[in-house]
Design a protein around this nucleic acid. Sequence first.
DNA 1: CGGTCTCTTGACGGAGTTCAAAGCTAGTGG
DNA 2: CCACTAGCTTTGAACTCCGTCAAGAGACCG
Lengths: 193, 193
Amino acid sequence: MFETLRTHIFNRVSMSEEDFNAGTVLMIPKKLRKRQYLLQAGDVCRSLAFISKGCLRLYSLDEVGGEHILRFGIEGSWMVDVESFKALKLANSNIDALEDSELFLMSYESWNKLSVAVPAWEHYIRDILAEEYNSAISRISDFMGASAEERYLHFLAIYPDLFQRVPLHQIASYLGITPQSLSRIRKEITERR
Amino acid sequence: MFETLRTHIFNRVSMSEEDFNAGTVLMIPKKLRKRQYLLQAGDVCRSLAFISKGCLRLYSLDEVGGEHILRFGIEGSWMVDVESFKALKLANSNIDALEDSELFLMSYESWNKLSVAVPAWEHYIRDILAEEYNSAISRISDFMGASAEERYLHFLAIYPDLFQRVPLHQIASYLGITPQSLSRIRKEITERR
DNA sequence: CGGTCTCTTGACGGAGTTCAAAGCTAGTGG
DNA sequence: CCACTAGCTTTGAACTCCGTCAAGAGACCG
């Protein structure tokens, strides 16, 4: 049941089997259907979510209703609106499922207890946060120095199978370009080889 | 001596005076002159740096030698190459001073001891990391949805006095545009009022 | 002073957007 | 099981923001 999570943790930090179980007993399984919200802007993000199967996106809306995908989450990654979860503030972002998905939720309260009781879990989550921070930084770096085509190629490197799983216009949104532009970039790439 | 740091911490987490001191005794003061490196790409980032006075920048270089400023740090903020510090890897980024600056350094070893011994410090740093993560996310959001002018206005809102302290071309680099474009944007803004 | 660093302005070009239309695909209900 | 519709993708044409190249004017410091 927790195999994906076990692998994810043990690859990163050393943790005893008991410590691992101390965390997993606090987790609640949840299934999400395609298009179903995990979090809607205006609500409070009360849980950390580990994705054991499927694909989610975190996105915000601009003044004219356009969606900006800030992050994809696939099996083996965590999803949370950090800003909202940290202080139980109202969220500015939305999280929904791009495929039927299976999650394990850990509530704010459970997480606070766990992080005090089991330092290994605190370290694990801090590690994840640092990783996410780094990938955010390299994405900023990408926006500053790379063309849309280069960003698309980086995306393919980071999420090798995602372009076959999610619609093109979602990927375009993640890259910060229009679907039309991404369509042309794809054409350009295939024509070159 | 540690007044800026004291304010910064006590605004964020509750911490006893003893816990606070347990951290500050581990910190080493350091002065940096304008243009002096705190970290050079290829070295390892072995310290967290709290800026009590001055201004630093963290930047990377692209293939053609262009500088991309990923972050400014002013008095009351922390500077570190997270990727390098986390696992003592070789850094891809540079950190240097834009003004004569005063720092307090906490070494990797000190930080590890402290975070185990004093959970309040661990929470504090985790909090900072989450804040930085959020500001990285909102910067990405900016690159996706906002024009260069809007990004400049956001920059002014976040760093109200920085545009008087650092050269225009550094700000342009932070915004991901050329100095020429920023010059024109500024002109445009002043002409409109 | 003289050189380096910084900022401004102009002309031109290109990457990506916007608007519009049409073809394609997949899901849904009759 | 087919037909229909909504969502997705592609393509074209015109336009726009910003980058590039180039030149010159201040400002600061040794």
